[in-house]
Design a protein around this nucleic acid. Structure first.
Length: 268
RNA sequence: CUAACCAUGGACAC
């Protein structure tokens, strides 16, 4: 019961459908396939491996008594339906499920945002009872993906007003909105907020800052963030190389590419 | 005490 969820998660991150299928059959043999954790992990693993059909089959073959108490399995089915463009199915599951937790709402909102049904997403968001940081970030990222970057940034302000604390996901999504608009002042404001609030300029936030400054025409500021970063991944290097390149600094761009190869990060 | 679901960053060249 404790081992199967771990094993299934590993199968998913190894991108091994064969492993997942093997573990699936072990769960059947041991009679644990109807345990909540095991079954949710199984459906989720199939989903993460891209076998949406198998994941939904697991859901559909689940007895009613189990479904009545396993919200997370519904959530997995909703998220997977959204990813396979089965939005109507997701909507039906969302309406029919016995009760909803924040992840149920968030998955549905994200699904609507990803197919561009912004009004429906907004409506659901406003109706949602206990919005968490994921809910706000989903809205922000959704607006940004659909090109409504001002609205995305207004979500950032609204969430602060609502007393909700942004996390790394929120900050990097907000910076990406500034980058897309070339909005330097907004970008500086978010950067300042991040510094004041103790966010590290690493990982996604660091890369977003590099990208934001270079898209706002401030490649020198991008460089300053870049050199301060302690860990740089492919995305970070790419953002910096792109920054130099679009500013016509071809020497720096090429030098940066060389430095990247020396730093044990493989170009993709 | 410990396990499962949801959101974020690079990818220019209409």
């Amino acid at each position: 019961r404790l081992v199967f969820p771990f094993a299934l998660r590993s199968a998913a991150s190894l991108h091994s459908p064969a492993c997942a299928a093997g573990i699936h059959s072990s769960t059947l043999k041991s009679g644990l396939d109807l345990d909540s954790f095991v079954r949710t992990s199984l459906a989720d693993a199939y989903g993460k491996l891209g076998h949406h059909d198998l994941a939904l089959k697991v859901f559909e073959e689940t007895p009613q008594w189990h479904l009545a108490s396993n919200i997370l399995l519904w959530n997995v089915a909703i998220a997977i339906s959204c990813r396979s463009d089965l939005l109507a199915n997701a909507q039906r599951l969302f309406d029919e499920m016995p009760e909803r937790n924040p992840a149920s709402w968030n998955s549905m909102i994200d699904g609507l945002m990803k197919v561009g049904l912004l009004e429906s997403a907004v409506e659901l968001f406003e109706r949602m009872p206990d919005k968490n940081v994921v809910s706000w970030t989903t809205m922000l990222a959704g607006f940004s993906r659909n090109g409504h970057n001002e609205k995305a940034l207004s979500m950032f302000d609204r969430m602060l007003e609502a007393g909700m604390r942004p996390n790394n996901f929120t900050v990097s999504a907000a910076l990406a909105s500034c980058a897309k608009m070339g909005a330097l002042n907004a970008g500086l404001r978010i950067h300042d907020y991040a510094k004041r609030s103790g966010f590290r300029e690493d990982g996604a936030i660091g890369t977003s800052l590099v990208d934001m400054y270079s898209k706002c025409g401030k490649v020198e500021l991008a460089k300053q963030v870049f050199v301060r970063m302690s860990v740089r991944d492919v995305e970070t290097w790419t953002a910096m190389i792109m920054g130099w390149a679009v500013h016509g600094c071809w020497r720096e761009a090429l030098q940066c590419f060389e430095d990247m190869k020396c730093s044990c990060v493989r170009p993709d």
